[in-house]
Amino acid sequence: MSTAATVSVIIVVALILLAIGNIVFSVLAERNNPPIGTFTECDGVRLHYLDRGDPAAPCVVLFHGNGSMIQDFTISGLVDLLARRNRVLCFDRPGFGYSQRPRSRIWTATAQADLFVKALNQLGARNPVVLGHSWGALVAIAIGLRNDYPIRGLVLASGYYFPTWRWDVWMMSGPAIPVLGDLVRYTVAPIISWAILPRLIRKLFAPRSVPRDFKTRFPASLTLRPKQLRAAAEESALLVPAAAHFQSRYPSIRCPVRIFHGTGDQVSEPEQARRLHQMLSRSDLHLLQDAGHMVIYADGAAIALAADTAGVPLPHDMRRRGPDVR
């Protein structure tokens, strides 16, 4: 056997061993972190969700950001705060946590909104407040733009609303490439992601420190599964196009909108929130001083209060008000 053939065999064997190792790791991650909610089947997609609070109370729906899952809202305390006065429905978005992400569809924010509106109707959720964090804010906006599903209001936290040059998201999109991306996801991507995860988490919370509860309770191993890496890569690739698609439509949002953003956000600059506030006719803006991308941890009480009161009409001159800086 030639040297080249020997090297090729070694590489193939190494890749097979890595793939087997990552499959075993995924099985163990799920065994150690079982589902914390329940499941519903909607439009051929199995969705994992939490249903908390009084079923007869006003409803608040929560959508997490890219790479995350339901636990972001439970660990931050936001679910418990909201459940005191509301029925809270908190979803793992497609491909994250324990929700499926069929490859037969391109899971744009609009496609996810279509799915969730069907799921909400199926679950009997009427006229909710919709709260989205980070990428989840785009899904919330997509629901807010619909004419066939009324909502009481939107609460948008740390969102990305206008297209900019984002080389970082393109670099993170590799595992979404068909075939080659699949090979990467099942071999080296989980190892690379495991190596950079601590730094990424620090960036998400900066300039504040990572909360102890997050360190001990967030199931980080679930984020390293090949199937979740694919979902995260796809949403990285779709981020800028989604913002470009929506930016001209923001003025048509008619419900009250509460916008939260950290002044120290290193993932989505605060100017994104300021620009959105100026385009909306019925919005107020809350800039949280020295908070980063994870504003749901920085001031969950204020965000919960905003969701509680999101259905209260805002003054028509709210858009001309200066930002509320805390």
Results as ranks from 00 to 15, higher is better:
residue 183 L to F: 03
residue 184 V to K: 12
residue 184 V to C: 09
residue 185 R to K: 09
residue 187 T to I: 04
residue 188 V to G: 12
residue 189 A to E: 08
residue 191 I to G: 05
residue 192 I to V: 12
residue 193 S to G: 14
residue 193 S to C: 15
residue 194 W to S: 11
residue 194 W to K: 14
residue 194 W to G: 12
residue 195 A to M: 11
residue 195 A to V: 14
residue 196 I to P: 07
residue 197 L to C: 12
residue 198 P to I: 07
residue 200 L to Y: 15
residue 200 L to P: 10
residue 203 K to C: 13
residue 204 L to N: 12
residue 205 F to D: 04
residue 206 A to N: 04
residue 206 A to Q: 04
residue 206 A to E: 06
residue 207 P to N: 04
residue 207 P to K: 02
residue 209 S to I: 15
residue 209 S to C: 10
residue 210 V to C: 05
residue 211 P to Q: 08
residue 212 R to G: 15
residue 212 R to D: 14
residue 212 R to F: 14
residue 213 D to E: 13
residue 213 D to A: 12
residue 213 D to I: 09
residue 214 F to M: 09
residue 215 K to P: 06
residue 215 K to Q: 13
residue 216 T to R: 14
residue 216 T to D: 14
residue 217 R to F: 09
residue 218 F to V: 02
residue 220 A to S: 14
residue 221 S to I: 05
residue 222 L to A: 08
residue 222 L to I: 06
residue 223 T to V: 09
residue 224 L to A: 03
residue 225 R to K: 07
residue 226 P to G: 05
residue 226 P to D: 08
residue 227 K to I: 15
residue 227 K to V: 13
residue 227 K to S: 15
residue 228 Q to G: 12
residue 229 L to I: 12
residue 232 A to Q: 13
residue 232 A to V: 11
residue 233 A to H: 03
residue 233 A to V: 06
residue 234 E to H: 09
residue 235 E to A: 07
residue 235 E to W: 07
residue 236 S to T: 11
residue 238 L to W: 11
residue 239 L to Q: 08
residue 240 V to L: 05
residue 241 P to V: 01
residue 242 A to K: 02
residue 242 A to D: 11
residue 243 A to M: 01
residue 246 F to L: 13
residue 247 Q to Y: 06
residue 247 Q to V: 04
residue 247 Q to S: 05
residue 248 S to W: 12
residue 248 S to Y: 10
residue 248 S to H: 15
residue 248 S to V: 09
residue 249 R to V: 06
residue 250 Y to I: 00
residue 251 P to Y: 05
residue 252 S to I: 15
residue 253 I to K: 02
residue 254 R to T: 15
residue 254 R to A: 12
residue 254 R to G: 15
residue 255 C to V: 09
residue 258 R to N: 09
residue 258 R to E: 09
residue 260 F to A: 04
residue 261 H to A: 00
residue 263 T to E: 02
residue 266 Q to N: 12
residue 266 Q to T: 14
residue 266 Q to I: 10
residue 266 Q to Y: 13
residue 268 S to V: 10
residue 268 S to M: 09
residue 268 S to Y: 09
residue 270 P to V: 04
residue 271 E to K: 10
residue 272 Q to P: 01
residue 273 A to K: 00
residue 276 L to P: 00
residue 278 Q to K: 12
residue 279 M to K: 13
residue 280 L to R: 01
residue 281 S to W: 05
residue 282 R to M: 03
residue 282 R to I: 01
residue 282 R to C: 02
residue 282 R to K: 05
residue 283 S to F: 00
residue 283 S to Y: 00
residue 283 S to C: 00
residue 283 S to T: 01
residue 284 D to Q: 10
residue 288 L to V: 08
residue 289 Q to R: 14
residue 292 G to K: 02
residue 292 G to Q: 06
residue 295 V to H: 02
residue 298 A to S: 08
residue 298 A to L: 03
residue 299 D to R: 06
residue 300 G to S: 11
residue 300 G to P: 05
residue 301 A to Q: 15
residue 302 A to F: 03
residue 303 I to C: 07
residue 305 L to D: 15
residue 306 A to L: 02
residue 306 A to I: 04
residue 306 A to H: 07
residue 309 T to V: 11
residue 310 A to Y: 02
residue 310 A to N: 04
residue 312 V to C: 14
residue 312 V to E: 11
residue 313 P to E: 06
residue 314 L to K: 00
residue 317 D to R: 08
residue 320 R to W: 13
residue 320 R to Y: 14
residue 320 R to M: 11
residue 322 G to W: 10
residue 324 D to F: 10
residue 325 V to D: 00
residue 325 V to Q: 01
residue 325 V to K: 00
